[in-house]
Design a binder for these strands. Structure first.
Ligand SMILES: NC(=O)c1ccc[n+]([C@@H]2O[C@H](COP(=O)([O-])OP(=O)(O)OC[C@H]3O[C@@H](n4cnc5c(N)ncnc54)[C@H](O)[C@@H]3O)[C@@H](O)[C@H]2O)c1
Ligand SMILES: NC(=O)c1ccc[n+]([C@@H]2O[C@H](COP(=O)([O-])OP(=O)(O)OC[C@H]3O[C@@H](n4cnc5c(N)ncnc54)[C@H](O)[C@@H]3O)[C@@H](O)[C@H]2O)c1
Lengths: 246, 246
DNA sequence: CGCGATTTGTGCACGCCTTCACAAGCGCCT
DNA sequence: AGGCGCTTGTGAAGGCGTGCACAAATCGCG
């Protein structure tokens, strides 16, 4: 790397350092590294080699080193990476030190599960508001939060500094909700409804479609079945272990 | 393509036709095309152009044509693709005409939502068995299915011809459940627990980690925030609309 | 202080994926 | 029947991502 920028810990607030533009594939893996690092820290490890961390995150070690090298030089040759330092670095890059406020729209079957999930809090997020269009749901309390009517969305987004919206409404309502979220100022959306959302430039959308995941698995089942029917029998060509993202 | 294999509709059972080995990226998009096609069929369209289908699926039209060309020549120049024919083709390739049996392990917060979701049925899957280790949950009925004890997993997998397993247990239990599923004969696993699973070759694993999705969005929020702080203001560089998978 | 063991950071080559651009093919209209 | 407009299917180019292999750097030890 060209510039040596060592003692630059995240605690060093103030001027934003030249923001590195990481490859999208790298970004998608950083959260995985982060999770593995937290496990290691909890297990008492102070340092970890790229080989060890790669194994814990389920990736190739060369890939991991290249990914980490993009954020700067935070490893020590002959030793490995300082676990806590790396955690801080990755959390800083991902913007998790800000504990982003999230709004969830559509408190049905799935939304209920998401709202009641405490795993988000430990990974940098606070679900601060729940919304639904069904007056039957409005007023109910889930995990300490009261479900509000979608009409209040705009005000809540501004007041609570919400930047991320999660959509777990039926697909027919998703585009409308997305429009409302964007109009209110949300610039990132996680969509669980199986449909394509159209949003203005500058707004990021990620989609999670569970049926698609199953369908991809189904394809591989189909492929495997047609292979075993052919000569050669079951060869076993390496279990895929792919993240869902990227 | 070299061989002209036209009237070969999926209904044509029997000998398995030379199985095309599609690029992984294409496979991940086929489900999206399929969903869009079903919407079009419901809306009464008989044919659809690559441009139209691409818009409905949220992808580039050239990419869509190349993807579809991998399954054979099912379009008509000057006209477009026959919607029903294409649906049948994609469903056949994905192996959805078999309505695969799925087992769900871990009927907690999230598992409950998944078990109660009727959207899987319409997309080629049947959740045929629910399992939990908690005796408190065992015996309860969800959506017509009774929760069974994980000890019965092996027998159920064999009896019901289950090939896909969904894990929605806490991460600490996930590897054990995966081992049980594999031992029982399951060859595809969809994992919701935030952890890396180790499985033998020949078994496919896909992971869905919602916190990772949020963290990726958080990164982009962080990036956008640091950009607006710089000269140039908010430029708006195209909303990302990326599938989660692949 | 020097040496060997260890591990990072990266140059490089390869393959996959995306996108453009266009020829070939098809149907419709005259 | 012929021409015209539309759409598919694909060749080619460029970009991105991956993984090998190794030089550079650091630590521990004698
Ligand atoms: N439940 C699952 O396991 C599951 C799995 C995969 C995908 N999904 C998808 O997630 C979404 C939610 O699924 P679900 O099972 O929770 O459905 P659901 O019907 O149980 O819940 C939908 C909720 O959204 C609310 N809603 C409807 N229109 C709204 C609007 N305009 N504004 C705000 N709220 C509105 C409804 O009142 C309801 O409470 C669906 O798109 C579904 O396809 C769910
Ligand atoms: N709830 C969410 O919205 C959400 C979101 C993201 C990720 N997740 C992940 O999904 C998984 C499930 O989350 P949850 O909120 O439903 O948790 P939960 O604790 O509500 O449910 C877990 C269930 O698994 C069962 N279980 C535990 N060990 C088992 C075993 N060995 N065999 C079979 N069943 C066993 C438990 O009895 C319980 O019913 C977790 O790994 C969680 O991190 C959940």
């Amino acid at each position: 790397m060209s510039q040596q920028r060592h003692g630059n810990t995240p605690g060093n607030a103030g001027a934003v350092p030249a923001f590195p533009d990481l490859p999208e594939a790298t970004i998608a893996r950083l959260p995985e590294y982060l999770r593995a690092l937290h496990n290691l820290a909890e297990a008492g490890s102070d340092t970890i080699s790229s080989e060890g961390l790669a194994a814990a995150a389920g990736v190739n070690s060369a890939k991991l080193r290249k990914d980490l090298s993009h954020l700067g030089s935070y490893g020590t040759r002959g030793v490995g990476y300082d676990v806590t330092l790396l955690i801080d670095q990755i959390e800083y890059i991902l913007g998790l030190d800000q504990r982003r406020a999230v709004a969830l729209v559509g408190v049905g079957n799935l939304g209920h599960a998401l709202a009641g999930y405490d795993g988000f809090a430990s990974r940098g997020f606070r679900i601060v508001a729940l919304f639904d269009a069904d007056l039957e749901q409005v007023g109910k309390a889930i995990n300490g939060l009261t479900v509000r009517h979608v009409g209040e969305l705009r005000r809540a987004v501004v007041e609570d500094g919400i930047t991320i919206g999660v959509i777990s409404t039926p697909p027919s309502a998703a585009q409308g909700v997305a429009d409302d979220l964007v109009a209110a100022g949300v610039t990132s959306i996680l969509n669980f409804a199986p449909c394509v959302l159209s949003v203005p430039a500058g707004v990021d959308v990620r989609k999670v479609d569970l049926a698609i995941e199953l369908q991809i698995l189904s394809f591989h089942e189909h492929r495997k079945a047609s292979l075993t029917a052919l000569p050669g029998g079951l060869v076993g060509e390496g279990g895929n272990q792919e993240a869902v993202g990227s």
